[in-house]
Structure formats: structure tokens, C-alpha cells
Amino acid sequence: MTALLRYQGALLLRSQRWLAPFVAYAAFVAVGIRPGDPVLDSLGYAAAGLVPLAAWLVRICVTNEPGAARDCAAAAAGPVRVHAAALLTGLAGTLLAGALAAGAALLVCDGAATGPGAAAVAGALVTAVCALTGSAVGALSGRPLVRRRGHGILAAALGSLLALVLAPSPARGAVTALVSGARSGTAEVPLTAVAVALALAAAAGTAACLAAARRG
């Protein structure tokens, strides 16, 4: 799996298709995070942007490989492992972007009310929740479950929106808890949301990988 992850990472970097989602997310963070803002507010804002970023990046990763190369990789390592590596590459890229944004928020925002340690832990967990939720959206809206590009883009956009506004969504719950904590000065640790997001991402990834094994 390590070799497949390196292969998928190299494909993503060489394709330069990661530039658009990363630049869009960087602009989103630059506009919304300002020096002196409450750190929990800023961490929640940065984490919320990871949902569409993850969906976008995962969709890129699962469609990035040329068909012939994908067939060769699937023949050598199995379609499930190849597809799982693509999904994990998208998730890893999202977590990297989220870590950079959270680090910037911790550096420039006001964390006196909560303390930097508590804010960092809560921010890291909410970042993981949003990245996992967005990755689940990307897995369900990408190849092989949704083969038409237009349909996949619409599904990813709608799924990202619903993940941020629907009450049962772990991403919405985690971000809401973080922003509410900024009002009370308490950094809540969203462990339930983490568990739900992990289960959701695992289920979506499993469904996509099994579909890849059946359809190729």
C-alpha cells in the first residue's frame, strides 16, 4: 500500500490538478481568518472549508490516472487497493491543507480565552472530522459510482453543501461545537463527531472500492 500511496501522490503532484482546489481553499482561508479574531471561530471556519476541498480533491485523485495505467495497476495490486490508495491520497492532501490553515489560525488569532493547547486539540479533531466527511462525499460522487463528470461535480457540490447544513452531519456538529465554544471560552472536543465521520468515511470508501472491483 505504501508504494501505491507514493504512486498516487506522484500522479497528483505531476498532474497539477491539485492547484485549483488548493488555491481556492487558500483564498477562502485568507478572506475569513484575520489577526485578532477568536481562534476557535477561525479554526471552525477553516475546517468547514475542508469539506468541499476534500470532495474536490478525492474526485481528482480517483480520476487522475489514465485508463491503461489504472488497468495495469489494478492487475498488479488489485482494484480495491488501487482505489483505496487514491481515496487516501485525497484525504491526506486535505489533511495537509487543513493542518496548514489551522496552524495559521493558531498563530495569528486570539487564543487567550481558551488556551493554545486546548484550541489546537479541538481544532485538529474538527479538521479531521471535516476532512473525513468531505472525503466520504468525494468517494460517493466520483468514479466508479458516478461516471459522468457533470453528474459527479453536481453530486459533490450538493453533498458538500448538505454536509455543512444538515444537523445529523458530523462536520456541521463539530464546526458548530467549535464556534459555540468561542462564545463560552471552552474548547469542546467532538469525539462523537470524530467517530461518526470515521464510520461514514469508511463506509463510503468501502462502497467505492467494492464498486471499483466490480466495474473496474
Rank of each mutant, 00 (worst) to 15 (best):
M1G: 03
A3H: 10
A3D: 14
A3K: 06
L4H: 11
Q8L: 04
G9C: 03
L12V: 05
L13D: 02
L13G: 00
Q16P: 00
W18P: 01
L19P: 01
P21Y: 04
P21E: 06
F22D: 04
A24D: 01
A24L: 14
F28T: 03
A30G: 11
A30Q: 08
G32I: 01
I33A: 09
P38F: 13
P38E: 15
D41F: 15
S42Q: 11
L43F: 09
A48K: 02
G49N: 06
G49Q: 03
L50H: 07
P52M: 01
A55R: 03
L57S: 06
V58L: 05
I60M: 03
V62E: 05
V62S: 06
T63W: 01
N64K: 00
A68K: 04
D71I: 03
C72Q: 11
C72V: 08
A74Y: 07
A76C: 09
A76D: 14
G78L: 12
P79C: 12
V80W: 14
R81A: 15
V82W: 07
V82G: 05
H83R: 13
A86P: 02
L87Q: 08
L91G: 07
A92D: 08
A92Q: 09
G93W: 11
L95P: 05
G98F: 01
A99F: 09
L100W: 07
A101V: 05
A102H: 10
G103Y: 05
A105G: 12
L106C: 12
L106A: 13
V108P: 12
D110I: 14
T114C: 15
T114Y: 12
P116G: 14
A119H: 13
A119T: 14
A120E: 07
A120R: 11
A124W: 13
A124F: 13
V126P: 11
V129G: 09
V129C: 10
C130D: 11
L132K: 07
T133P: 05
G134H: 02
S135H: 07
S135D: 05
A136Q: 08
A136S: 13
V137F: 02
A139S: 09
L140F: 03
S141C: 03
R143A: 06
P144S: 01
L145W: 02
L145V: 02
V146Y: 01
V146I: 11
V146N: 00
R147A: 05
R148M: 00
R149Q: 03
I153Y: 01
L154K: 00
L154Y: 00
L154S: 01
A156Q: 02
A157S: 02
A157P: 00
L158F: 08
L158M: 08
G159I: 02
S160R: 00
L161N: 01
L162I: 04
A163M: 10
L166I: 10
A167W: 14
A167T: 15
A171R: 09
A174Y: 14
V175T: 15
A177R: 12
V179W: 10
S180Q: 15
R183D: 14
S184Q: 04
G185N: 08
V189W: 09
V189F: 09
V194D: 08
V196N: 11
V196G: 11
A197W: 07
L200M: 13
L200K: 07
A202D: 07
G205M: 08
A207H: 10
A208R: 06
L210W: 13
A212V: 04
A213F: 03
R214L: 09
R214V: 06
